[in-house]
Amino acid sequence: MEEKNIITFIDQNNHPVDYEILDIQEYNGNIYCVCYLADNSSTEVYIFRVEEVDDMHDRYVLEADDQITQAVFESFKKRNKDNFKFS
């Protein structure tokens, strides 16, 4: 596993959570990160919308809009059709 793709988030309880960033996309003016849980406890990807907080931090919010989620995921699938096995 290449560490360079790992990003560490801080959850609401101040616990670090590691994700592996698989892709970053711009969609409708927002930036989305397509992530994999770094501990591989799931084979699903998580799509986070990136929101600016301050000069040092961004907030990563799981996209709640299913339409956007699907659009980003479809794009991710196209872009990475040779990189992943999509089941």
């Binding site: 988030f9 801080i10 970053i24 000069d55 931090h57 961004d58 907030r59 919010v61």
Partner: peptide, 8 residues
């Protein structure tokens, strides 16, 4: 889910 993280 919402996390705080480094500037992307």
């Amino acid at each position: 889910i919402s996390y705080l993280g480094p500037k992307i």
